[in-house]
Design a protein around this nucleic acid. Structure first.
Lengths: 254, 254
DNA sequence: GAGTGGTCTAGACCACGTC
DNA sequence: ACGTGGTCTAGACCACTCC
């Protein structure tokens, strides 16, 4: 029978470490509790700090840990379900949703957004910046692009800037009737600006939700929202308050 | 006026590197082209290999690079849009979709899944494993959980195992009428099994799509699908063939 | 066997939050 | 000032692919 394939197929240390830590988190720690610092943990497990950090990074990616420079590593609460559906006939900003602190400028969007909007490459559009807050924590930063043609009745004279303009744009938008929207979700990493607003470091993983709003047979607006991937679970429907634990991410062969 | 805040706010090396590389990718490389190896690149930029790797990891996370051990680093094609909507009245497995190679066992699901299914903690359910293939590449691995009560007419005698059973379960499922579904998307990391099927290393970032299928006022099935986060953009609607480039991920202050 | 990316080490220094 | 996590280095060895 030649060599017996040991089950010890050379599992990387950091992977094993991650598993051990994950179990420890379930049994010995409570949400919010702070872990020993990285140097101590590394020593305790007999590995280099870099190796330990690789395990911690994974756990943070999976939303189980939260690390803050100068503070420490804490056990993260379960991800919050964030509803990403705008009940079919609602423009963004309608009703009681948790978007706030709008800002607005007029600028030329990136080529990618211009393509989605179907505008000229150098055409300026209204660009509304908003922050979505949940339980007091920022969960998403959004950039909403609105071509002038979608809001023709905007008071052109003495265009207010900043929050006032933002509100005007949103108000005008809501006068159009929304015929539909489509959405895409992909993984990205936070740019410097988003990172600051989301209280994360640049490069932090985010879920980028791109939405096109259709009205009168054309694309009336495009929204690019970046959600904190560590703390958010995007929901489409009414799963928002259902608890989905971490177990689903690690499975064994059947 | 005190100190003038230099714009050189101590941007990390790997971050700057990433930016430089990203530009190089846009201008000097074509999709599929292989980059110089990591040792050469590191030397060329005058940084340690670990630092270079940090930059490459980011770019891979953003879907711009593809790295394979023993082979090299290549420029990745744009992410493929993968439609995640099952046209409202379709059970999974219906029609011409790209799922294949079904496998099926009977097992006790994780506590999290049992909760979603609303079954007893130790109740066995049919567990169908499928792979979703797109353009010849595996893009997602799914585990579909179906309580026996959802498929009462399954031929109990001499239960076929494997693919045959899987097909039977799916066929029976499709006889129920689907009343609705809800979906959640979150970031996860691939377990050992999923990683192998998706042709990635364990720990690779994945988008976990959890779907509940409702029929006759109850949860008839639950699907947990893990999509390769590096190569996929999940679409909800008909954005599938629209090109969304990488520019949307990096933005500057307005 | 040669060459690639993946893992790991043992250090150093920096940026940040807190006291 | 101190302790934390974040960045960076210069090596070493391993696992994998391809020839």
């Amino acid at each position: 029978m030649g060599t017996t394939q040991l089950e010890t197929v050379q599992e990387p240390k950091y992977w094993h470490l991650k598993t051990v830590l994950a179990e420890a988190l379930d049994t010995d720690f409570t949400v919010g509790e702070i872990l020993p610092n990285e140097r101590d943990l590394a020593a305790r497990f007999g590995v280099a700090r870099a190796t330990l950090r690789q395990a911690l990074e994974q756990l943070e990616l999976e939303g189980r840990l939260q690390r803050r420079r100068g503070v420490g590593t804490t056990v993260a609460p379960p991800r919050v379900g964030v509803d990403v559906t705008t009940s079919r006939q609602d423009w963004p900003g309608t009703g009681h949703d948790a978007w706030q602190a709008a800002e607005c400028t007029v600028a030329v969007p990136s080529a990618a957004v211009a393509r989605l909007l179907d505008t000229e490459a150098d055409e300026e559009v209204h660009t509304v910046r908003r922050l979505r807050v949940n339980h007091g924590q920022p969960v998403a930063a959004e950039l909403l692009y609105v071509p002038s043609s979608s809001v023709p009745d905007l008071p052109a004279i003495e265009a207010p800037s900043g929050p006032a303009l933002a509100r005007s744009v949103l108000r005008e938008l809501q006068r159009l009737d929304l015929e539909g929207q489509d959405r895409a979700v992909e993984l990205g990493s936070a740019g410097a600006v988003d990172a600051r607003e989301l209280d994360r470091l640049p490069g932090a993983p985010v879920l980028v939700v791109t939405t096109r709003y259709f009205s009168e047979g054309r694309t009336a607006a495009v929204s690019v929202a970046t959600y904190r991937a560590d703390t958010c679970r995007l929901t489409f429907g009414d799963t928002g308050d259902v608890e989905i634990s971490h177990e689903g991410q690690q499975r064994r062969a059947s």
